[in-house]
Design a protein around this nucleic acid. Structure first.
Length: 428
RNA sequence: GUGGGUGUAGCUCAGUUGGUUAGAGCGCCGGACUGUGGCUCCGGAGGCCGCGGGUUCGAGUCCCGUUACCCACCCCA
């Protein structure tokens, strides 16, 4: 057989898995400050949850979904992102009925069939929040602030990051602007790449995203939505910016920021970093999606949220030289001098563990020397040495690994004495 | 889907113009007067040299194919 993880996936061995848990722990603590609660939705959904929500013409839906038919003949798709599922679940369970607000966060793997490269995997992890039922611009500013604070609290210097902000308008002003851009593109088709020319009919706004120098030059002269927002959108956008200003969140307005999902309305944003990420420089992003729940047949319910990628965040952390806090694998190592004391070693280890102390022992019963090496590697602060000599006196030896001091403990009170010794150590 | 790069011990890599038992560092295991760590020293285990063909007296080293990974384009987290 092929003992290899599928293309675009990777095993997260302990070093990486620890970092993963750190990212989640920091997120949970931060999100709780803002009142967000956890939610777990299925890793797969009925395909139309994504086709209707994200949009048929988007790259995600048109070429990146893991879609298959299950044995019941249903079309099933592995989730390529989190928002659609959360909104679907909120509708299904009426979380926002009668004007209620729901603040939810999720974390887990997403799936997109793409060619892997730096910062891009077929199975990748995202953590995100969704704020449903809140049309107010303070909600926009809050969500953006949570994203920014998250990266800050992980230790990414704010000077390494930039927050891009834009408004995509709503149903009142975007269609007209869309037409404007479409005809602008048709008018300049000769100077644009094939892809962009085609975009006139499918997704004209995306032409702003093209990296082709010729296209960029042409699009630099295109009319901007910023100048054609309807009054409500303009007011909302101005308020969002004012709230961010008040919190000193340093955004950069980017009228070419057009995110690749159809459901966005009004506010969209993205956090980018330069170092460490290759060409995938966005570590998080999101926006407002006031029409998404209606798209699923529910009542008009505003909402917005963000998602951030674990793999990319980790790359950004590495580039910034941030160390993930290491957790010692053992506080105490119980060493045995020879096989005659195996039973006592095993029993004492368990008593320590039952008392809440991380205790380790060597099942292989190697030499005392190698047990000490092991204790050292595990980061144990104390080693309890159990040997025939001290056992005959009903005692064990306790060694402090940093001071090298040793003392005898009565076996009967060893657990309490070890805990006391750990306590003393912790205070200095 | 397109293009480029790389595949040699657990990890990071050397391997000269093809030539005898394929190397280093780190890690791992053991030892240094034998019940004790982090330094140093000594020893040891561990390699279908990605896979399949071909050229050759002889290929890790050249040629062809294939596959995997990496990076880039597209796009996004």
């Amino acid at each position: 057989m092929n003992a290899r993880a599928p293309k675009g996936t990777s095993d997260m061995l302990p070093d990486v898995a620890r970092a993963w848990e750190h990212l989640q722990r920091v997120a949970q603590e931060l999100f709780a400050l803002y009142g967000y609660e956890p939610v777990y939705t299925p890793l797969f959904e009925h395909t139309d949850v994504f086709t209707r929500g994200i949009g048929e013409a988007t790259d995600i839906v048109s070429k990146e979904m893991y879609t298959f038919e299950d044995k019941g003949g249903r079309s099933i798709t592995l989730r390529p992102e989190g928002t659609a599922s959360v909104v679907r679940a909120s509708l299904e369970h009426n979380l926002t009925a009668n004007g209620a607000q729901a603040k939810l966060y999720y974390a887990g793997p997403m799936f997109r069939y793409e060619r892997p490269q730096k910062g891009r995997m077929r199975q990748f992890w995202q953590i995100g929040i969704e704020c449903l039922g809140a049309p107010e611009p303070t909600a926009d500013a809050e969500v953006i602030t949570v994203l920014w604070r998250y990266f800050e609290s992980l230790g990414i210097p704010s000077t390494n990051m930039r927050l891009l902000l834009n408004s995509m308008g709503d149903e009142a002003c975007r269609p007209a602007y869309r037409d404007t851009i479409a005809s602008f593109i048709r008018g300049h088709a000769a100077d644009l790449c094939d892809e962009c020319s085609r975009r006139a009919d499918t997704n004209p706004l995306r032409a702003f995203d093209c990296k082709d120098p010729a296209c960029r030059e042409v699009m630099a002269g295109a009319p901007l939505l910023r100048d054609e927002l309807c009054e409500e959108c303009a007011t909302h956008y101005a308020a969002v910016k004012a709230h961010l200003d008040a919190l000193d969140i340093p955004y950069i307005e980017d009228s070419t920021l057009v995110r690749g999902l159809d459901y966005y309305t009004r506010t969209v944003f993205e956090v980018q970093v330069d170092a460490g990420l290759g060409s995938q420089n966005a570590i998080g992003g999101g926006g407002r999606y006031d029409r998404l729940m209606q798209e699923y047949g529910g009542p008009a319910t505003p909402g917005l949220g963000f998602a951030l990628g674990f793999e990319r965040t980790l790359l950004a952390l590495e580039a910034a030289g941030v160390q993930i806090p290491a957790v010692p694998r053992a506080e105490v190592f119980v060493a045995r001098v020879d096989d005659s004391v195996t039973a006592e070693v095993f029993a004492l280890s368990q008593r320590l563990r039952d008392a809440g102390v991380a205790a380790e022992l060597d099942h292989q019963a190697r030499s005392l020397k190698s047990q000490f090496k092991q204790a050292d590697r595990l980061g144990a602060r104390l080693v309890v040495i159990v040997g025939p000599e001290e056992l005959a006196a009903g005692e064990v030896t306790l060694r402090d690994m940093s001071t090298k001091e040793e003392k005898r403990l009565a076996l009967d009170s060893a657990t309490a004495d070890v805990i006391a010794a750990l306590g003393e150590e912790g205070t200095d």
